[in-house]
Design a protein around this nucleic acid. Structure first.
Length: 253
DNA sequence: CTTCTTACA
DNA sequence: TGTAAGCA
């Protein structure tokens, strides 16, 4: 009915760059910059002007959230390019897990023994070092240098010690977490194998579909991680309420 | 007049 | 990331 000449967009859910940028609270310049880095899909082109959809908007909003959380553009880029088909929320959680996103392949890093002790806020202790070595979390390089094999575990662990937990408690948590999370991990992998991989093997294995199956399995990693994290968090909160809440209440009495 | 690209700062 | 020039 109404055909205003200034509004060629009759598809209700499509925007021009300008509208897109506005809704995402970004400048057009940055929208284009992200687009040029492949962070958003190319728009539907009509002549020379592009028309963007809600999917584009959501992607930009995700980028903004991650940027606002303090991640570098490079890290955001890495996260998005890694899991293109994963829902935006999952990618966000994935980034939180990966922290930086870059050193996911070989995270090991060299650190003087004194530095590790400083991070934990405790005096240097050979026994603690040995305990970490036994857990395959670090390696002895020489008398003064350590190789941190799993910084994602060691760094927060040191932080926990710095906050007042005993090193023994923190170190003791590692085998405990490995054991219990390992059960859940093996269960999920087993079910994935049975329900996703096996059917493809059974029905004749069209070779060209393998990348897709493999991709699906890969993408389950961040999704499962997110669920694990959410459940663990709620368990932590529940424990805090009962255990610590009770003690505080007793103090009040 | 707007979109897009490229280039520069 | 902003600004500008040239183009469709």
């Amino acid at each position: 009915m109404i055909a205003t000449m200034s509004e060629p967009t009759l598809h209700a859910e499509e925007f021009t760059v300008d509208e897109l940028a506005q809704r995402a609270n970004m400048t057009v310049r940055n929208v284009r910059a992200y687009a040029s880095r492949g962070l958003i899909d190319p728009p539907r082109l009509e002549g020379r002007t592009g028309y963007y959809t809600l999917a584009h908007l959501q992607r930009l909003q995700l980028i903004r959230q991650l940027l606002d959380r303090g991640f570098t553009l490079a890290a955001v880029e890495d996260a998005i390019l890694r899991s293109p088909t994963t829902a935006p929320g999952h990618a966000l959680e994935l980034m939180t897990l990966l922290e930086t996103g870059d050193d996911a392949d070989d995270p090991s890093v060299l650190m003087p023994r004194a530095d590790l002790a400083a991070l934990a806020g405790v005096p240097q202790d050979d026994e603690l070092i040995d305990a970490l070595v036994d857990l395959d979390l670090i390696e002895k390089v020489d008398d003064t240098m350590l190789r941190i094999l799993d910084p994602a575990v060691v760094r927060p662990g040191a932080a926990a010690v710095a906050l007042g937990l005993s090193p023994e408690t923190v170190i003791g948590a590692v085998p405990l977490l490995r054991e219990h999370l390992g059960v859940a991990a093996r269960y999920l992998v087993h079910r994935t194998s049975e329900e996703i991989v096996q059917p493809f093997l059974d029905e004749g294995l069209p070779e060209q579909d393998w990348p897709r199956v493999f991709g699906a399995v890969e993408e389950l990693l961040p999704i499962a991680s997110q669920v694990m994290l959410a459940i663990f968090r709620s368990e932590l909160r529940a424990s805090i309420e009962t255990e610590i809440g009770d003690k505080l209440q007793q103090m009040g009495d």
